[in-house]
Computed example of a mutant assay.
Amino acid sequence: MSTRRDTVRRALNDSTGFRSAQDLYADLRGAGSKIGLTTVYRALQALSDSGEIDVLRTDDGEAVYRACATEAHHHHLVCRKCSTAIEVEGPTVEAWAANVGAQHGFSDVTHTLEVFGTCAECVAGDN
Rank of each mutant, 00 (worst) to 15 (best):
V78E: 02
Q45L: 08
C79D: 07
L37T: 05
M1H: 09
R19L: 13
T110Y: 03
S33Q: 04
V123L: 15
K34I: 06
T92S: 14
F116D: 11
T58I: 02
G30P: 05
M1Y: 07
R66Q: 10
K34C: 09
S83E: 10
G17W: 01
D14H: 04
A31M: 05
D6L: 12
E89Q: 15
E87W: 08
Q22F: 06
S20D: 04
D108W: 01
N127I: 12
E89V: 14
R80L: 15
S48V: 05
N99S: 13
D60F: 03
S83C: 08
H111S: 14
R57E: 14
T16I: 11
D27I: 00
V115I: 14
D6N: 15
T70P: 01
T70H: 04
G105T: 08
E121N: 14
G36R: 08
R19S: 15
A97L: 04
S50P: 04
S15Q: 15
A21E: 02
T7M: 08
L37Y: 06
T70C: 09
D23P: 00
A97Y: 03
A85Q: 06
T92Y: 08
S15N: 13
D59Q: 11
F106T: 00
F18N: 04
S33M: 02
E89H: 15
R29E: 10
A124R: 12
T84S: 11
V88T: 12
V8G: 02
Y41H: 15
V40F: 01
G51D: 09
D27A: 11
D27G: 09
A67N: 07
L28D: 03
S2L: 12
C79K: 01
C79W: 02
C68E: 08
V78I: 13
E94Y: 04
A67E: 08
S15K: 09
E71D: 12
T16V: 12
H73K: 12
L113M: 11
T39G: 05
L77A: 07
E121I: 07
A98T: 10
I86Y: 14
D108Y: 06
R66F: 06
L77F: 09
V123D: 11
L28R: 00
C79S: 07
T38K: 07
Q103I: 00
S48N: 13
A46Y: 03
A124W: 00
L28P: 04
R57Y: 07
K34L: 13
E87Q: 15
R42M: 04
D108F: 06
C79Y: 03
K81P: 00
Y41G: 02
A31Q: 11
R80E: 14
Y25C: 02
C122K: 07
E62Y: 00
Y65W: 10
L56E: 07
T110R: 09
Q22H: 10
C122I: 10
R80C: 11
H73L: 15
W96C: 10
T118G: 05
D126F: 00
A95S: 13
G51F: 07
F106I: 01
Y25G: 01
E114W: 05
L24Y: 06
T92N: 13
R4F: 05
A95G: 09
